[in-house]
């Protein structure tokens, strides 16, 4: 993938991330959401486990995209997802925190996909979201295995902060090659 096409994807991710940030801000009222410029990286499959952070524990909401093996996920270090949901669940019941996490993930990730779909006039149907707590590496390799994808990995990731830097998260989109090609096609960047 050449630099121009990566730039086009970064543009796309920027708009998606903006939408996701707006959705998060609405959810959390006046808490500040900061979004950094998205990174689009091509990572060799063999290096994915180390690249995403190895054994570092993360909490995440994962969501299949389009039913064809693409994934999008909202990832926080440690138990960040639970901390994120606590203000929404005053009692702090584990079951409610869990469903709260799914809801936060659902709203944020769907907002990201909506922006991409609108921009490129291509449907990117979100599947059911699911919360996961594990290591960064296990999470990512399992997503790739579930999509049976053996090529280089295109990681479209955006860092964001809530409440200053107290909660840092990452939004990662792992598109299947076919969706990726179609998105670039719509942007006039087809192969």
């Amino acid at each position: 993938m050449d630099a121009t096409r990566l730039d086009a994807l970064r543009e796309l991710a920027t708009i998606g991330a903006g939408n996701a940030a707006r959705a998060l801000s609405e959810l959390y009222g006046d808490r500040l959401v900061n979004v950094s410029i998205p990174a689009v990286r091509v990572v060799p499959l063999a290096r994915v486990a180390e690249e995403v952070g190895g054994d570092r524990p993360v909490s995440a909401v994962v969501m299949p995209v389009g039913g064809r093996g693409g994934w999008i996920c909202l990832i926080f270090a440690d138990d960040g997802l639970e901390r994120l949901c606590r203000p929404l669940v005053p009692g702090g019941e584990p079951e409610l925190l869990r469903s709260g996490a799914v809801e936060v993930g659902n709203i944020t990730l769907t907002a990201y996909l909506d922006a991409l779909a609108t921009l490129t006039d291509r449907p990117l149907r979100p599947g059911p979201p699911e919360p996961v707590e594990d290591s960064a590496a296990s999470l990512m390799t399992s997503l790739l295995a579930a999509s049976q994808s053996v090529g280089d990995v295109i990681l479209m990731s955006t860092q964001f902060e809530l409440d200053g830097s107290r909660l840092e998260g990452q939004l990662v989109y792992l598109p299947v090659r076919r969706d990726l090609e179609a998105l670039l096609e719509r942007l006039g960047m087809g192969a």
Partner: peptide, 25 residues
């Protein structure tokens, strides 16, 4: 020495081999 996804490494003592991210792998 790190063994990445889809890789294999053979070695002898005193080497230690490590692999991360065995989810469904």
């Amino acid at each position: 020495r790190t063994v990445g996804l889809g890789e294999l490494v053979a070695a002898s003592a005193p080497t230690r081999l490590v692999t991360y991210g065995l989810g469904s792998c």
